[in-house]
């Protein structure tokens, strides 16, 4: 899956949401085309993101109702070629294993219902992956938070990643959930939001990771929900888009993180959904497909995934239902979590 941006730009003239269309077929062929762009230099320069790129592309296709638009067996083959002996995934073959790509690997296998294939190819594969996150010591025994890899960069993104992957694998019991929950609480700020670590500025992306982890742990009772809901709803700007922090620009990906967070708090209705849908739809390239961060910029697979996920959460007609906590099709998370 290429992470090359473009070729097109997002830009649909403003209008009422009921008048704007979603160019579903264009988006499907846009994502399919990304795998055929290996002759471009940027394809190789973005190799360190490849597995996440595949997750974004695949999720977008599932939400568009075209789960078979990428050949399933080849996708699985690629994912497993990124799996290391230690149970972690690298972004591409030959790249070190890292929490972020381990989560993407698990999410892709879950979406494709391919845990059995994993087991067939790597004996005890699920447990192996779960143990990377646990026994390899990625959880800090003292603070409860998680590192991305053995080098120890710590961030609430990695904590959420661990909760996401382990819950999909049915292995959440491997880690100290209470301790991790305590760490999330220590990242709560005076303005009601959450940052990357205790004291770090509130940021919509980090609010999403903290809130999603607390949702998985069943501990939303620890959140000052009105206060955080107010902070999140203040992220909507006059043009309908949402930003990541006060006084910053709107962006399609923040639109997802803010809106999904509001959904976890059951407060999606606190902002203007029509205006948000309108903003996201304006970021499409109606000719060649794909979404950009804001109208006028180049499209890419990352914003395509989060644009579609946002529209799905807004119940835009024709899209498959998304899970606000996992950013995966709801049917997939239901299947995995009921096991």
């Amino acid at each position: 899956m290429s992470l090359v941006s473009g070729p097109g730009r997002g830009g649909v003239a403003a209008g009422l949401p009921q008048e704007l269309s979603l160019y579903m077929d264009k988006h499907v062929s846009y994502i399919q085309s990304l795998d055929r762009r290996k002759d471009e230099r940027e394809y190789w320069l973005t190799e360190h993101l490849r597995l996440s790129g595949l997750y974004w592309g695949l999720t977008a296709l599932h939400l568009l109702g075209h789960p078979d638009a990428l050949p399933r067996s080849q996708v699985i083959e690629f994912v497993l070629s990124c799996l290391h002996e230690n149970g972690g995934f690298g972004a591409a073959p030959g790249h070190d294993s890292h929490m972020l790509y381990t989560v993407s690997g698990v999410q892709i296998l879950a979406t494709l219902d391919a845990f059995d294939e994993l087991e067939a190819r790597v004996q005890g594969g699920r447990l192996k992956i779960g143990q990377l996150v646990d026994i390899a010591g990625l959880q800090d025994a003292e603070t409860g938070t998680f590192a991305g890899d053995e080098w120890g960069e710590r961030d609430t993104r990695f904590l959420y990643g661990a909760f996401n992957a382990l819950s999909l694998l049915g292995l959440l019991h491997l880690i100290n959930v209470d301790k991790a929950v305590g760490h999330i609480q220590s990242c709560a700020n005076f303005d009601g939001g959450y940052g990357t670590s205790p004291g770090a500025e509130s940021h919509s992306g980090q609010v999403f990771t903290c809130l999603a982890a607390l949702t998985i742990a069943g501990r939303l009772d620890l959140v000052d929900q009105d206060k955080l809901g107010a902070w999140l709803s203040e992220r909507q700007l006059k043009n309908g888009g949402l930003n990541g922090r006060p006084e910053k620009k709107e962006d399609v990906c923040y639109s997802w993180w803010v809106f999904s967070s509001l959904a976890m708090l059951n407060k999606q209705h606190w902002i203007d959904g029509d205006k948000l849908a309108n903003f996201i739809l304006q970021c499409q390239d109606p000719q060649m497909g794909g979404f950009s961060d804001r109208p006028g910029d180049m499209v890419d697979v990352f914003h395509t995934c989060f644009g579609l996920a946002g529209l799905s959460l807004l119940k835009f007609p024709g899209l498959i239902e998304v899970d606000a906590v996992y950013c995966m099709p709801r049917a997939v998370t239901k299947r995995c979590l009921s096991k």
Binding site: K38, W44, L45, A92, G94
Partner: peptide, 23 residues
Amino acid sequence: PQDDGGPHPLAAIAYSDEYSEAM
């Protein structure tokens, strides 16, 4: 050379520039 995974490794792709050589 680069191994892009999957059943058909892309090592055969004639892709040569400064970056891929260094890698």
